[in-house]
Nucleic acid binder design. Sequence first.
DNA 1: TTATAGATTGCCT
DNA 2: GGCAATCTATAAT
Length: 200
Amino acid sequence: MKLRPLPRSFFSRDPRRVAHELLGKLLIRNRGKRVLAGRIVEAEAYLGESDPAAHAASGMTERNRVLFGPPGHAYVYFIYGQYFCLNVSCQPEGEAGCVLFRALEPIAGLKEMVRARGLRASDGEASRKKLTTGPSRLCQAMGITRARDNGKDLTSPRSGLWIADDGFRRRRITRTPRVGIKKAERLRYVIEGNVFVSGR
DNA sequence: TTATAGATTGCCT
DNA sequence: GGCAATCTATAAT
């Protein structure tokens, strides 16, 4: 399997375009000799300061500064007192915008993911499906935290967290409203029929 | 199968 | 002080 990192130019575009084209790509975590990988099956676009639901809505703060930096970098935020969510910055430097990773299909490092999620190998299919289905679940499975990963360059394998094209060609893509957002724009992108897409 | 409550921190008004 | 781009367990149907 040949893995090619996505170039920075891929992310220097409108988040809607990036979210759509990210489906089917791989999110890869290298931890020492171990490799964790999942295929992106669900993502949401968040626009810049014009998007009231985006963290960038009211300008740059200490928390969201990555969103205004160069494209292709990890924006990890802490939510509900106990969870993390992973985004990748989009648009040229100076302009905000990002894509939220909402669900992966586990590809490599399943045993590690099971352990990181606090499950047991014997837990069965129902819980196996919940391994990386949901923005905070996938962060748990891949060991993504704000302290460790916020600001990392996702276009470089050397950062230990990166995005690759392995030649996979996704099938049909559906658009729906974003999860937990009142304004009902269809900025959520999912691979149609994929079992690992999150609920709602 | 769906509905609801509770967890628990830090960001922003 | 209010509440969030969530998840889990438990209860009700």
